[in-house]
């Protein structure tokens, strides 16, 4: 599936926080209908990349392509319009609102639109359906999110993303706080979402989990993509090697990125396959398996 046109592509993203270069010309590619794991050490820039690609922050420079077309994601609403949803590392839920309200936050359903009167029954009904869909059994969708367990909160954030995503879901460490059972449940949901044809970008520090659920892996180190793997052809040692810098396969010498990024990018159609080809090439960059 990796030979297809990329669904989402980021080229040369730069984001600076004062002295810290959180993204230093980062590239990222996601193909339709795959689970791609985005891994890297603490502070590698994973969350920053995700926030950039979901419109929560604006990069200092760089381009983003959706379906081969250059887009500007200047707010979360822009990203939503492109079918991109995000489960943030901090979940981004309003703890005093109930699960149904959180699920529809920013996308309320109205009883009387002109007066902006909410249709709480309908929102609740859809929330119950959405949770059922995910196999999450919330005892009470009317209880404030603050009163839910960590896993249940996570489920609410995941359900919200799943309910609206039409193309891509970013999940920033969705299993970090979970027990074994809950973790399995989230991984099941990731597969389920992928089976609906939605691309899932999973950020995780848990290598067995990454190997279990992903189709591909992209590795970020110090704000740059340093390696890409097909999950079937890799193992924990390689992934760890790439994260720690012991193993580097691409982007590091700064080959295509600054040069090919800008000229090729303005023509939307042909621009993207041009940079997609190194994607397939990168996987066989090492035979040390």
């Amino acid at each position: 599936m990796a030979e297809a046109e990329p669904l989402l592509e980021a080229r040369n993203l730069v984001k600076r926080y004062g002295q810290v270069l959180a993204l230093d010309g980062a590239n990222f590619t996601a193909y339709p209908g795959e689970v791609v794991a985005l891994i890297g050490d603490n502070g590698a820039g994973k969350s920053t990349l995700v926030k950039t690609l979901s419109g929560a922050i604006r990069p200092d420079s760089g381009q983003i392509f959706v379906d081969g077309k250059a887009v500007s994601l200047s707010s979360p609403l822009d990203a939503r319009r492109h079918g991109i949803e995000t489960v943030y590392q901090d979940l981004a839920l309003a703890p005093d609102l109930d699960a149904a309200a959180n699920l529809h936050l920013g996308r309320e359903i109205y009883r009387v639109r002109a007066l902006q009167i909410l249709n709480k029954t309908e929102m609740r009904r859809r929330a119950v359906a959405a949770f059922k869909d995910l196999g999450v059994n919330l005892p009470d969708v009317g209880a404030p999110v603050a009163s839910l367990s960590g896993g249940q909160r996570q489920s609410v954030a995941v359900a919200r993303a799943v309910a609206y995503a039409s193309k891509i879901i970013f999940m920033d460490e969705p299993t970090a706080a979970l027990g074994v059972v809950q973790r399995e449940r989230v991984l099941d949901n990731i597969r389920r979402v992928r089976d609906r044809g939605i691309t899932v970008v999973l950020i995780s520090h848990n290598m067995p989990e990454v190997l279990a659920v992903s189709d591909r892996v992209e590795v970020l180190r110090m704000g740059r993509r340093v390696a890409r793997f097909r999950t079937a052809d890799t193992n924990v040692e390689q992934l760890v090697g790439a994260m720690t810098g012991a193993l580097t396969t691409e982007d590091e010498p700064g080959p295509g990125s600054p040069g090919s990024g800008s000229p090729g990018s303005d023509s939307p159609g042909p621009g993207s396959p041009g940079s997609a080809s190194p994607g397939s090439a990168s996987t066989d960059g090492r035979g040390a398996a």
Partner: peptide, 12 residues
């Protein structure tokens, strides 16, 4: 009031 950053991220 509950979480301004969350509100911002959903486009409010």
């Amino acid at each position: 009031g509950s979480n301004p950053e969350a509100a911002r991220r959903v486009g409010i």
